[in-house]
């Protein structure tokens, strides 16, 4: 006989082991494979140490000054070097940190920015339609005006999109305030919530916000 007596106990351990392994795999996938883990906090080193906190926060440059197509196009443009040079031909003219910008400007070569926020190819996302209907940059990109170097603040997962699509009234704001990332209805939190509720509903109705939930709204 090849097996000793204690081996008869093994069968009872098998289901426990299987349950543990199965549970661990499912939990592992939930934690490690989804955008909350894979995307949030992503902060690549950019070729030029551009600070949004300085430009958009301290200096108060409007988002649309650089990302000029955001209201008109599905794509929010990355500024060309010439946009930078509007100011930097006068300010910090010879700063070594801006060498790449100047080089780009003179040679007509793009600056190799690293894209931070990206939706997969199978997702259709249109910036203009969101911005024009009063959905602020901050909803998806976070407080970029406080970031020295931009990082991925929100998960941009499917449920993230759908949370808003299911209840746009909770996120909509006056279109003029879209690029004012710190804007609130009121400094009083309770009052702000109340105003959001009342106005949000009206805005959604008046501006005919059709936040589609069908698959082909995004996966077209």
């Amino acid at each position: 006989m090849i097996f000793p007596k204690w081996t008869n106990q093994i069968p009872f351990l098998i289901p426990i082991g299987l349950a543990l392994v199965g549970g661990a795999v499912a939990a592992g996938v939930t934690v490690y494979c989804t955008p909350k883990n894979t995307r949030v906090g992503y902060q690549p080193v950019q070729p030029v140490p551009f600070s949004h906190a300085v430009h958009a926060g301290q200096l108060g440059v409007d988002c649309r000054y650089c990302h000029s197509t955001v209201e008109k196009s599905w794509f929010s443009s990355i500024p060309a070097a010439s946009t930078c040079m509007n100011c930097h031909s006068l300010i910090l003219k010879d700063d070594p940190r801006l060498a790449l910008v100047r080089e780009s400007f003179t040679n007509n070569t793009p600056i190799p920015w690293v894209q931070v926020h990206i939706v997969p190819d199978y997702v259709y996302f249109n910036h203009s339609v969101h911005v024009a209907r009063g959905f602020s940059c901050v909803e998806c990109h976070g407080r970029v005006d406080q970031m020295d170097e931009v990082h991925h603040a929100k998960s941009l997962s499917m449920s993230f999109c759908l949370d808003c699509h299911r209840n746009p009234a909770a996120f909509i704001r006056p279109p003029g305030k879209v690029t004012d990332l710190g804007w609130q209805w009121s400094t009083n939190a309770a009052e702000a919530a109340k105003l959001q509720e009342v106005n949000g509903k009206n805005f959604v109705h008046d501006w005919r916000v059709e936040s589609l939930q069908s698959c082909s709204a995004c996966h077209r």
Binding site: A26, V29, T30, C33, T34, P35, K36, S155, S157, M158, S159, F160, L162
Partner: peptide, 13 residues
């Protein structure tokens, strides 16, 4: 491929 199994995840999928 794990999208095809009913595993709760932050995609809401």
């Amino acid at each position: 491929d794990w999208f095809m199994f009913p595993i709760p995840n932050s995609n809401g999928l």
